[in-house]
Design a protein around this nucleic acid. Structure first.
Lengths: 226, 226
DNA sequence: CTTGACACAGAACAGGCGTTCGGTTATCAT
DNA sequence: ATGATAACCGAACGCCTGTTCTGTGTCAAG
């Protein structure tokens, strides 16, 4: 008994193929061949798989590069995007020290480091991202920077900053995260919280920039106690 | 004259192959064949490409699935991770309305929507993520939730919540983002900012949950004026 | 000078793979 | 009934592709 597709949309086999291609791609990082699709979806003939792939292509669900082995890909951005793995060097808190990456060390090759995956599309277009690193905020000492306990801040190494960039600055023996403004004869360090007053520092005082803040990520997974 | 590899590390051809595979993978979403690698890197013989691929595999730079066409992949997590594209439905601000996704609408197929790419590794493990959506915070009305103008909040549809989860709640005709606690005969709505006092609401008052907050993302790209 | 490791080139083989074509069955409107 | 169409199957064709084998020139160590 033959199957009949009632709706104009996706039949069961269409869905099965779509799901399998997606899963296979995730597992192997390359697309399946027509025969592999057939085996796993219960289709015995390669021509039938081809038949369905043609339909899926017309529906816009997949793209095919003809004549090329494994030239199938799920169209649309539903799949995997271009990402960057950024190592989490350790904790950060307001205080006299700031964790910065040792130059010349490639943290990516070391398995011991935790890391976060960030889509390139979330970063500034020019950002190559090779030297980014991340820190995990510990405690509530960054609340005036609108940053919570447990947040992850993505940093970029820097010793100086342009006006309006958020940086980790060391003033009066403490690193804090502030928006940085250089004015006539002073630095204005503005908290992210608009209700809080800026810290004004004369240029004579030592102001050390530890890095620029590129991004802040707050995960809400775990329900908060208390 | 033959090329000699001085260092034990990557020679020029190793690097060229590595770069090409990465770029090809990015462009086509499937790996190149051996012959394609050869053509683009100036290697005339497939056996030599194979020779280099073997070395790169031993160095741990790539992984190969033998006998499988285009079975090459850059090893390590330096490449593309498993991501989710989450549509940005629109702006959010403290107020009487909250944008929620229309059930049954697949925003992914519509090109008109902005979206953010989020690595699955950043989401809770159980989260399938099919129904997630994002909102862009407008204005400073969420400062007591430690959320800034321009931040992106990733939401999950929900009509109820467990204790400690951050939710969009509508109380007294206004949606705000608060940590949610159900107590004996009242709701305690706790701002994320630990210096601020909770909002206590009797159970008799209408409390409507619009969704759970899964994640908050703050991009620092543009230097802030003022 | 010989030896051996290394970095190549070229050709050939065998299986992988997409494509095509002839044929079958079921459903449905004419 | 009849024809059209959609949903299949199986086999065959031929290019695509990974693998392997033979051979060549270079260079450093013994």
């Amino acid at each position: 008994m033959m199957m009949v597709r009632k709706s104009k949309g996706l039949g069961e086999r269409h869905q099965r193929i779509l799901d399998f291609v997606l899963e296979y791609q995730r597992e192997n990082r390359y697309p399946p061949s027509i025969r592999e699709i057939g085996e796993k979806t219960g289709i015995t003939s390669t021509s039938v798989v081809n038949y369905y792939l043609d339909q899926l292509e017309k529906m816009g669900k997949i793209e095919r590069d003809r004549k090329i082995s494994r030239g199938v890909r799920i169209s649309g951005p539903n799949t995997s995007a271009d990402t960057l793995r950024i190592p989490i060097l350790g904790p950060i808190a307001a205080g006299p020290f700031l964790l910065v990456p040792e130059p010349g060390v490639n943290y990516m090759n070391e398995k011991e480091f935790e890391a976060v995956d960030i889509a390139r599309s979330l970063l500034p277009a020019k950002e190559k991202g090779n030297d980014l690193y991340a820190l995990e905020v510990q405690g509530d000492s960054m609340i005036d920077a609108m940053i919570n306990d447990g947040d992850i801040v993505v940093m970029k190494p820097a010793n100086e900053a342009r006006n309006g960039e958020m940086v980790a600055v060391r003033v009066r023996d403490e690193y804090t995260l502030k928006y940085f403004y250089k004015e006539k004869d002073r630095f204005r360090l503005q908290p992210a919280n608009p209700t809080m007053k800026p810290l004004i520092v004369k240029k004579s005082e030592p102001v050390e920039i530890g890095g620029k803040v590129v991004m802040v990520i707050r995960k809400m997974e775990r329900p908060l106690a208390a």
